[in-house]
């Protein structure tokens, strides 16, 4: 396998006619990291990935893979391999032929092609399906084949475009750990585009929230979002104005105070909604000032003194739980 490479974007911009798809994004992804590009649909994350892959021209700026600027290189010369959203497995070829496709294009002899394809299929546990056609496989199996096919080019960077979005939730979770395992095994750089914050948190060494450009490890993104946009997009956060600052407060740091401590209250609110979620309970709150807040508390804690919709409560939080935000850019 190839050595992992860093991927660096320097003010990369993409315009389609007059429409700006990617606005001067700068980013450095260290070699061998699992990086998730996270953002709502239409934020340019797929365009960014396709520019790195070489399937989309860069309007402005530079893309570097390792020490080289690759703006004008064709996809196959970049040392990247892409896994497409719908997998794009060739329907007229068998699984083994799909996986060996890149070798066939290079003119590698049939024997060696079969052997190397078999080896890669083993990595994704698909050996027994080598002679099937893609239509005969389930979504998860197709995905493994697409992964194997991409890995056959010995990439130093693997690009994944929403790889899990076509799978059902149960399979998604399983494939998540599979991807993580394969990345660790190969040690190459993975860049994974997703709109699911949960997926990004679970997988990434480095989460890049698009639109805003904040790039940080998942814990830092979650505990210290830089702007209201990031906080809102990551979810589980309350954004409120407090003493002239905009702060964010994790939903599980917002407490509903017992009557004895009502004097410490920073807000007074009315319970507008109660949602039981199994391990915890989400309580929707309307403050007197009209803010909508959310508190999440453990299931047992909630049922020690259950609330009802419409009850008046006092809200408080530890000063160190509040995190100050800068304005949305």
């Amino acid at each position: 396998m190839s050595e992992a490479q860093t991927v660096e974007l320097a003010a990369v911009t993409k315009r389609y006619g007059d429409a700006l798809a990617v606005d001067a994004i700068s980013l450095k992804i260290p070699a061998g990291k699992y990086c998730c590009l996270l953002g709502p649909s239409g934020c340019g994350k797929s365009s960014t990935l396709r520019m790195i892959a070489g399937h989309e021209d860069v309007t402005d700026g530079d893309i570097m893979i390792g020490p080289r600027v690759v703006n004008d290189d064709p996809p196959a010369a970049r040392g990247t391999a892409m896994m497409f959203q719908n997998y794009a497995l060739f329907p007229h070829l068998s699984v083994a032929e799909n996986v060996a496709f890149s070798l066939r294009m290079k003119g590698v002899a049939k024997e060696e092609r079969r052997e190397r394809a078999a080896h890669t299929l083993e990595l994704v546990s698909m050996t027994e399906f080598a002679d099937r056609t893609p239509q005969q496989l389930s979504g998860g199996q197709q995905q493994r084949v697409a992964l194997a096919r991409a890995l056959m080019t010995d990439p130093s960077v693997l690009l994944l475009d929403e790889p899990l979005s076509a799978l059902d939730p149960f399979l998604r979770v399983r494939m998540r750990s599979e991807l993580r395992r394969i990345q660790a095994e190969l040690g190459i750089t993975f860049i994974h585009v997703t709109h699911s914050q949960e997926e990004a948190m679970a997988l990434a060494d480095l989460v890049v929230v698009m639109n805003d450009g904040q790039a940080a490890p998942p814990r830092e993104i979650y505990n210290a979002p830089r702007t209201p946009f990031v906080a809102r997009f990551i979810g589980g956060h309350n954004i409120l104005e407090d003493e002239g600052r905009t702060i964010t407060l994790r939903a599980d740091d917002l407490s509903i105070l017992p009557d004895a401590r009502a004097a410490e209250a920073r807000r007074r609110a009315r319970v507008s909604e109660i949602e039981y979620r199994g391990p915890d309970v989400r309580v929707g709150l309307e403050t007197d000032a009209g803010e909508s807040l959310t508190a999440v508390m453990g299931e047992r804690t909630f049922f020690e003194s259950p609330l009802r919709e419409g009850s008046e409560v006092a809200l408080g939080w530890q000063p160190e739980a509040a995190h100050e935000l800068s304005r949305d850019g």
């Binding site: 399937h55 196959a76 959203q85 719908n86 794009a88 496709f101 294009m105 290079k106 056959m152 080019t153």
Partner: peptide, 15 residues
Amino acid sequence: FDPAYEEAARDLGAT
């Protein structure tokens, strides 16, 4: 015809 098939081929080094 989904152009992704052709992109995939290009990605895998096909002329």
